[in-house]
Amino acid sequence: MDQRIKKTIVNAVLIIVLSLLLFLAGTWWRMQAQFQLGEAALAKGDFTGALAGYESAIHMYVPFHPTIENAAQKLWRLGELAERQGDVTRALIVYRALRSAFYADRWLVQPGQEWIGRCDRKIASLVPLQRER
């Protein structure tokens, strides 16, 4: 193989690997930033801000990253809190957002299947309560 062709192939592979690493680093950074926004909003009692931050963190899906699971747990607790307070509408918003965030994260496999199932069950139990009001 010609030396020039080898050099071109090596350069192309390096560019591809570097691009993928930059993409992964950017996604990781945005995921952490969104999670922190959710944490700050929750600390201030800002339901909408917390919901948006945690949901956005899940959208920045990085396989096996613990922040994804932490954001899902935070959203779940937010939904349970709304339920305990008798706010069925807010609880449904949270559970639907959590479920939708994982559906939007289609990857090689569907992430968050356990969370999706849990949300489906919660939503099914809460929708009749919302109609009673």
Rank of each mutant, 00 (worst) to 15 (best):
C119K: 04
P111G: 11
W107E: 06
R106F: 12
A101C: 05
G112D: 06
W115N: 02
V127I: 13
K122I: 03
A104D: 07
V127Y: 12
Q130H: 02
R106T: 06
V127E: 15
V109Y: 15
R96H: 13
D120C: 03
L108Q: 06
E132N: 10
Q113N: 07
L129G: 02
W115E: 04
A124P: 01
L126E: 07
P128G: 13
R99T: 05
R131V: 15
A97P: 04
G112A: 06
Q130Y: 06
R131E: 12
G112C: 04
Q113A: 06
I116A: 03
K122V: 07
Q113S: 09
A101V: 04
A124V: 10
L129A: 08
A97G: 05
Y95P: 11
L108C: 01
W107R: 04
P128A: 13
E132M: 09
R106E: 07
E114T: 13
D105A: 15
D105R: 13
E114N: 05
S100Q: 09
R106M: 12
V109R: 15
G117D: 05
A124R: 12
S125H: 12
E114S: 11
I123R: 03
K122L: 09
Y95L: 12
Q110C: 02
C119G: 07
L129D: 00
E114Q: 11
Y95N: 07
A124C: 07
S125N: 05
L129K: 10
A124D: 06
Q130L: 15
A124I: 05
L129Y: 07
A104W: 08
G117M: 10
L126M: 08
K122A: 10
A97R: 03
D105V: 02
R99S: 06
S125R: 12
G112P: 07
A101I: 02
S100N: 12
F102V: 02
Q113P: 00
V109N: 13
R131P: 00
V109D: 14
R96N: 14
R121A: 14
R118Y: 15
R121Y: 01
Y95D: 14
L98E: 10
R121S: 10
E114R: 08
